[in-house]
Design a protein around this nucleic acid. Structure first.
Lengths: 155, 155
DNA sequence: GCTTCATGTCAACTATGTTGACTTGAGATG
DNA sequence: CATCTCAAGTCAACATAGTTGACATGAAGC
């Protein structure tokens, strides 16, 4: 099931560059894949995947978040959230309780098991980033973040 | 410009950071989204999407590529390739001809219309990268590429 | 009471991918 | 010639991640 990482995506540096920025496009693709590959593998072994991780990641950083706010942050429809969220609740990685005074909203929170999985999955990603930053040095890391910030804010 | 780009993914900078590298994880996510957003939008208006663009991108840089080699490079199964490839052929964005001597393989090539769409979609992505690189300067761009290369090669 | 409205759920659909099993057609080889 | 191989293509069943539309629920307001 885990594909050989060689065939997982564009084969690095095997394509002619038609434009000077083609290398950057391919690096973005490979970089995204490279950062998420191990984490996705780990998640798959837990019977989970990227959307589940996204939910866990956000809830870990916003305990007692309401479902509506989570939908906003994830940028998906509430219907799309429904199934992965249901699985996480069923697997008891998340708890949902109604707030006493705000009885309309359900508040989400990670269980200890959910915290463990969120942390392990994110750790795989952070490990990749840490290794790359170590090789690039502090100034390289800062430059990387500046460029990524510019790209992220370009819309 | 720093508009609170509401539902387009994680809301920038709105989450607490549990680890010092969380900002990097989020930047990778936003960066990928930021680079591809306009291109995906353009593709959607053409009735196409990311997998179609990936095919066009590779074939543009490897004219007369065989289907088997394309599968290798894209890292997907031939069945998964089948539908998007069929659409591109039907829309006459790609041609497929059997090679004279290697009669077993079909060789793929972009039509003029296919070249145009590939170029326009990739242009959207290059435009985003160019703007970010311009803001970061040549050394920043080089640092970005070094970090991304390290991430890409980490598997 | 009855309506309003945010929240949440269910159903049907689309798209992209996966395996597995099979066919087709040309090349190579006994 | 017969047959085996191999790239390509097809068909079916399924998983996952997303979409809209329709509907249920429940606190709040008239």
């Amino acid at each position: 099931m885990p594909k050989t990482s060689q065939a997982a995506g564009l084969h690095r540096a095997s394509l002619d560059k038609l434009h000077d920025l083609d290398a950057a496009l391919e690096l973005m693709y490979y970089g995204w894949r490279g950062m998420t590959l191990e984490a996705d593998d780990y998640l798959a072994r837990q019977g989970l995947s990227r959307p589940h991780h996204r939910i866990l990641y956000v809830v870990a950083r916003r305990p007692d978040i309401a479902i509506g706010a989570l939908i906003e942050i994830l940028g998906i429809s509430k219907q799309a959230l429904n199934r992965p969220l249901g699985l996480l609740l069923e697997r008891k990685l998340l708890t949902s309780k109604r707030s006493p005074e705000q009885h309309r909203s359900k508040l989400l929170r990670l269980t200890v098991a959910g915290q463990r999985i969120e942390q392990k999955a994110s750790d795989h990603e952070r490990k990749v980033m840490r290794a790359a930053f170590d090789r690039a040095g502090a100034s390289g890391a800062a430059a990387w973040m500046a460029v990524m910030g510019a790209i992220a804010d370009s819309n």
